[in-house]
Design a protein around this nucleic acid. Structure first.
Lengths: 346, 346
DNA sequence: CTGAAAGCGCTAACAG
DNA sequence: CTGTTAGCGCTTTCAG
């Protein structure tokens, strides 16, 4: 009696099937597939027999079984804040490219900046162990992260310096200094004295860091932040509109507004124009991150520009350094660069 | 001698650890976790002991081991054409929401419309068996798909009617009729006699279907498609600019242009304006799919509008019907609805 | 009501 | 150079 039935048509062949067809043992098949790992040589003859059998059956190794055995999943997880925000697109694309080069698959998750979703993401990667994590946490506390890290040991790279944990690598730290630069430029190059701010005023990153950069630039320049100079915005285009509408109601609004991200900056321009104001005539407006919409809007948007594809590559390479054991110990910090892209809106 | 060492700090607990702590066998733990499956009742006392142990250890079942055993991965894969194209965002978001409700994870992959990437995606889901696939194939041949399907048995739902396979469910079929409607509107409501077209003229979907809709509307109206009325565009904003530049060079260009997707339509508007032309004054321009950029551009873009979140939900629900065995047999076809969103550009 | 045992497909010692 | 064997963590008969 056969040990194993002929596999039903359409069922996926296993290593066993390959071994049977090639007339060798299953472990020999495994060896030729992982030749790099084993130092043991294999006779060219059996190698060919096995390779032929593999081709004939169209065999593909089952990653699930392999993962269970090796305790590696060949998969990394990425949590982004908002799939609609073009800021993330070049980053995701770059991460996928790097992962592909390392022969890894990518599990993408979208948090929509909601705390429950961020926690759920952590639970997911605990149940479905991935080999590494890239995330842009907005709501997660350092405590949540700490609880996760002591349980999981999975390397994490965070996008944005809001996270403070001795074990996680961080790429970011542009918010404060880049905002400072941008606001200084508005003041020194464009001669503004009354500069406003739209961004999160609550704890949600990267709100606070960008606000601090704004504050420092104003102070350095000896300018005061008047009572109504800063309005809250939720980092969406609609949020930018709402915030701008607050400025438009004011008696004596700022002449320039630094907006903490570009979708909001575009919303602000649209709201100003809807109210019959001109940009940059009545308001100079500056955004953060150079997304495609920045050149669709009229006037085109002046922005703080980071090299997003490069950040994506960096973040992924840093993660793979950990995964491959090329880096160990304390979490590292990488500051990414930026420049100002001057267009029409400021 | 202990059968199993105390798990090292930071290592993930297994069902075995839970069983030991609760003083029961591992299979009993499995039973309380899958209570719905088993019909066997479990004494409230052991149930509680086990639940407590689970809580104490913070145990989470290992999905990889479960998958190997059950031959189900609790994961679906989604292949989209272009992560930068806002068309996909509401769809991806809806799919994630539905998947979450079914307790599934989502593996997202970005093909960038490149044949090799699409093939690679198929290989990936063969090695890492997912329970279902949603894809927007652009370059894959029916033959590629057929080869895959006979090998894998994984249910597939395709977005867009370009795919013809007896086993795959399709959601789409709007391209031809919606384009027809849109072009008819340009002719009948706006009085255009000379209507042009930007889209793929090669085989790449959804180019041909939209071109056929355009053709039929022109014929029905007794209008001729002149030699230079249709230009090729690659479905990106830049591609739209290039195509428009061709029209701008012409002696006697069309007065209205139907553009096969909205990023290209925006590129066309930008190119026209850069050349000193006005929209809709010199050219009426109409796009396909209502993306956020449509209301950022000035003039705002008139589009064919599909209910994208609804399409995403539909596509996911159809897939889960297959996965759960609620649907069987022949691939089904679902036509999604559309309407015209009239704005300023046409 | 609960435990023992088999086995999903694979890798990695350990023997030859 | 190659085969045998023991699990990875889990579900699911099969016995009690």
């Amino acid at each position: 009696m056969a040990k194993r039935k002929t596999p039903p048509i359409g069922s996926i062949p296993t290593m066993h099937d390959v071994a049977k067809l090639a007339g060798v043992s299953q472990s020999t098949v495994s060896r030729v597939l992982n030749q790099s790992v084993t130092l043991v040589p294999i006779s060219e003859e059996t190698r060919q027999k096995i390779l032929n059998a593999i081709r004939e059956l169209g065999y593909q190794p089952n990653m699930i079984a392999r993962s269970l055995r090796t305790q590696r999943s060949q998969m990394i997880a990425v949590m982004i804040g908002d799939i609609s925000n073009a800021f993330y697109h070049p980053i995701v694309r770059a991460v996928q490219d790097v992962a592909r080069a390392y022969d890894y698959d990518v599990l993408i998750s979208n948090s929509d900046h909601i705390y429950e979703n961020e926690v759920r993401f952590l639970e997911t990667v605990l149940r479905r162990p991935v080999d590494g994590i890239i995330m842009a946490p907005h709501r997660l506390t350092t405590e949540d992260l700490d609880k996760f890290i002591t349980r999981s040991q999975i390397p994490i790279v965070a996008l944005g310096a809001q996270v403070q944990h001795p074990a996680v690598d961080v790429v970011g730290g542009t918010s404060e200094p880049a905002t400072y630069d941008a606001v200084m430029w508005l003041i020194q190059e464009r001669g503004h004295r009354r500069v406003g701010f739209i961004g999160t005023l609550d704890e949600m990153p990267p709100g606070p860091a960008r606000y601090r950069g704004y504050q420092r630039a104003m102070e350095t320049s000896g300018l005061v932040i008047e009572h109504d100079f800063a309005h809250h915005g939720d980092f969406t285009l609609e949020g930018g509109k709402l915030a701008m509408q607050n400025f438009l109601k004011q008696e004596n609004p700022p002449s320039a507004i630094f907006v903490a991200n570009s979708p909001m900056a575009i919303g602000a321009i649209l709201a100003a124009q809807a109210a019959g104001c001109t940009v940059p005539g009545d308001f100079s407006i500056m955004g953060f991150d150079d997304i495609p919409e920045a050149t669709i809007i009229h006037p085109t948007l002046t922005t703080v520009t980071r090299d997003l594809p490069n950040i994506g590559r960096q973040v992924a390479e840093i993660l793979f350094e950990r995964i491959d054991g090329r880096a160990e110990g304390q979490g590292r910090f990488f500051q990414s660069g930026w420049k100002l892209t001057i267009r029409e809106s400021a």
